[in-house]
């Protein structure tokens, strides 16, 4: 038996690794997190908040294990929970550890509780961030007499380096090519970038290209583009529906940041809100535009 498998492939590990696109995703997101902790100093001088990351990962895995136990009993699904957890670590910050537990629990809980035709409706990490913001904001209402959430998205932890565009873009593309969702990313970032460039260079009459570029190379925005909006399970199945959906998210996100509406929504956070708001439309699009339902195991 051993001789046949050895002849078939030199590295069984590599073969196993290539089976599932989520393996790539886990590796890349972990690299970003480690880079953030050690090079960008996210965990503070003395790594105090590393425990917060471990907490998010722990809660996500446990919640998913419970979910799996009562549903499919297929524990390969834990990989998805790990991706969600890493996504939350990279995007969501909170003052209190309880808010992080809430984010992690609602992220996974939403997956099992809010479903339509065998697909969960909301992107789990997105759902976690939004629910943490909304619920903690409501809880804090009595203390501040206004909506003051305990969770926030911190684009300041990433900075805006052009190199980030290449690294996040390239790594994201590898994953997306395997999953077949690169179209979503490109449609989103293409539309969003065109709008930002049009506003800055044409409407406002800036002369320096670095100004729109600085906005577009923000780490949080790129992470959203290549690792959040592309989740194959929560995007429409049909290709053109998917592209239209991504364009809609880009247009609405951009609209939220326009001065005229005077909403205090930052460029980096707007897509996260918009994705949440437009998630239910996915179900609608799936109904009218038939496409093959995505499965991780093919």
């Amino acid at each position: 038996m051993s001789s046949t498998t050895q002849a078939k492939s030199a590295s069984p590990f590599l073969q196993f690794f290539k089976q599932d696109a989520r393996h790539f995703q886990i590796v890349y997101l972990s690299i970003f997190l480690i880079y953030g902790i050690f090079w960008l100093g996210w965990a503070g001088q003395h790594f105090e908040s590393v425990t917060q990351y471990l907490l998010i990962i722990g809660v996500c895995l446990i919640a998913q294990a419970i979910g799996i136990h009562f549903t499919t009993k297929d524990f390969r699904g834990l990989k998805s929970a790990l991706i969600t957890a890493l996504g939350l670590c990279l995007l969501c910050k909170a003052n209190s550890s309880w808010t992080l537990v809430l984010a992690a629990a609602t992220a996974i809980g939403g997956k099992y509780l809010i479903r339509y035709k065998g697909k969960h409706v909301f992107n789990p990490a997105n759902m976690g961030i939004i629910m943490a913001i909304i619920i903690s904001g409501l809880v804090n209402f009595s203390q501040y007499d206004r909506f003051v959430p305990d969770a926030w998205v911190s684009p300041g932890q990433w900075g805006s380096d052009v190199i980030m565009l290449f690294v996040l873009g390239a790594m994201g593309s590898i994953v997306l090519l395997r999953v077949g969702r690169l179209d979503t990313s490109l449609a989103f970032i293409g539309t969003f970038a065109s709008l930002v460039i049009l506003r800055d260079m044409v409407y406002l009459g800036e002369t320096d290209w670095r100004i729109p570029f600085h906005t577009l190379t923000n780490g949080s925005l790129l992470l959203f583009t290549f690792f959040m909006i592309t989740d194959p399970v929560t995007t429409p199945n049909a290709k053109w529906a998917r592209i239209a959906w991504a364009v809609a998210i880009a247009v609405i996100s951009f609209g939220l940041t326009i001065d005229a509406f005077s909403l205090d929504v930052r460029v980096h956070a707007a897509p996260i809100y918009t994705l949440f708001a437009l998630a239910p439309i996915t179900a609608l699009l799936d109904r009218y535009f038939k496409g093959k339902k995505f499965s991780w195991y093919e």
């Binding site: 960008l40 100093g41 001088q45 911190s154 300041g156 900075g159 805006s160 980096h268």
Partner: peptide, 19 residues
């Protein structure tokens, strides 16, 4: 602020090494 830290959103924020 009346909540907590103020941080930049369009530039990277780093704590100065201390203690």
């Amino acid at each position: 602020s009346d909540q907590g830290r103020v941080e930049p959103t369009n530039y990277r924020n780093v704590e100065i090494p201390a203690d």
